[in-house]
Design a protein around this nucleic acid. Structure first.
Lengths: 244, 244
DNA sequence: TAGATTGTTAATCGATTAACAATC
DNA sequence: TAGATTGTTAATCGATTAACAATC
């Protein structure tokens, strides 16, 4: 979800290999490359060039090359990159090797959906427990994770050295939950509640802003119906036009 | 959600008032302004300046002014904008007045969460029915919406003139579902499945890319632990540091 | 009036793309 | 070798920000 959105990031982004800061858009494309490379690997393809990646992902080759360089990978002229190597480079660049354990707050439908996403573990994220303030939910198990009372969060986070928190509560509860997380020493918050969070500057917040995404989509759809009716079968098939 | 993020949008974006194309980032900020202005209205504040908005939303005033100009609103020097007028301007600009009816496919946890989001209607989105291919789900009602068999979708979409489709299936099913939607004449797809969709060029696709967002978050967290340990209480409180 | 704020034009900044040299 | 592809430097493009005139 992007959505960007959502994209003005005041803090300078510097990366370890010292090639200067990495642009936020490049960072956002990394998981796309990773996903694509996994597919290649499944197909038994072990080498790939930027032109190939670009063609399949709708990006110009030089952009792919620049992005990949941020991971520190070195390719070979004429042969390109070794797929397996590239996958590892991206994973290590993104920090997916040292798994982030996380607490999730808000065991509603969205929270349940995220708790059930076993794929997250492959991407360095392990949700170890859920929290809620609703007594009817506390004590239950959701996708193998216990639902604990919210007031236990801060203490547990501290004792277990949890650095990442996920908020899937209604908007009204989000700030309170964030405060609790910060009290427990949590350093980064992945926020799915439609609310602006006030946090100390050292805390990283990523908000998944569904409404921003919806706004953009609905604007484009509205535009569509201002212009003459779309010709059926104009360009009948094929182009990947994803955005988000 | 972000994204973007996912942010290279090849099609030129032109807007009705003829001030030229609107930047995608400006479009993404619109819902943020809207949300903020609703809060002001609740507080009984009826006029607001760009500096005020900017201060509260962490944006420079001139950026706010430029963004708002895309809606066609005209402010008054010294007094600023009328809040109610501005809200209407944004809503009409985003097309939230003519409600978009939508079909949702994938009545799992995420789908259920979205079906229950009654707030969407305020933002021009009305999910009128859900679809699934799981016989155990078909015929059930989720948050007041019927779950219908997937093979009824194309026909119904056509007969009801539904233009918007929402995909909340697992990745494997996403392409098939998208194809069905397009067969039914759906023009825009809001995709929550982690899959690249192949669609005709005239179909708008917005993908909520959780993994891209997670990648960016986990990179930043990994960076955090490379640098010297964060001083507790350095800048103890207050700044809104949302992004994503 | 003076000062605050809008609207607008010009400058800056950062990401993308183009051009080209180096390498296998 | 010739050609494909990487790596890198320079040019372009677009969004943001600065500067300033217009207006209430």
């Amino acid at each position: 979800m992007v959505i960007d959105i959502n994209l003005s990031n005041p803090e300078a982004i510097h990366h370890p290999a010292g090639q200067g800061p990495i642009p936020q858009p490049s960072l956002n494309r990394m998981s796309q490359y990773h996903h694509y490379l996994m597919e290649l690997q499944d197909q038994g393809i072990d080498r790939v060039s930027c032109s190939r990646i670009g063609a399949d992902l709708n990006l110009v080759p030089v952009q792919v090359r620049k992005d990949l360089q941020y991971t520190g990978i070195i390719g070979k002229p004429k042969t390109g990159y070794v797929v397996a190597e590239l996958i590892l480079a991206i994973e290590s660049f993104l920090g997916w090797n040292n798994v982030n354990e996380a607490f999730l707050v808000g065991a509603g439908n969205l929270g349940t959906a995220l708790l059930g996403h076993e794929r997250f573990t492959k991407f360095g994220l392990q949700i170890v427990a859920a929290f809620d303030s609703d007594p009817s939910k506390i004590g239950q198990w959701v996708h193998g994770k216990a639902v604990l009372p919210l007031d236990k969060l801060a203490d547990l986070a501290q004792r277990m050295s949890i650095h990442l928190g996920i908020i899937t509560t209604p908007a009204e509860a989000a700030q309170t939950v964030a405060d609790e997380m910060i009290r427990g020493g949590i350093q980064a918050i992945w926020n799915f509640a439609p609310a602006r969070l006030k946090v100390p500057t050292h805390v990283i917040v990523h908000s998944e802003d569904l409404y921003s995404s919806l706004a953009s989509l609905s604007w484009k759809l509205a535009q569509r119906f201002h212009v003459p009716i779309q010709q059926e079968g104009g360009t009948p098939d094929g182009v990947d036009a994803n955005c988000g």
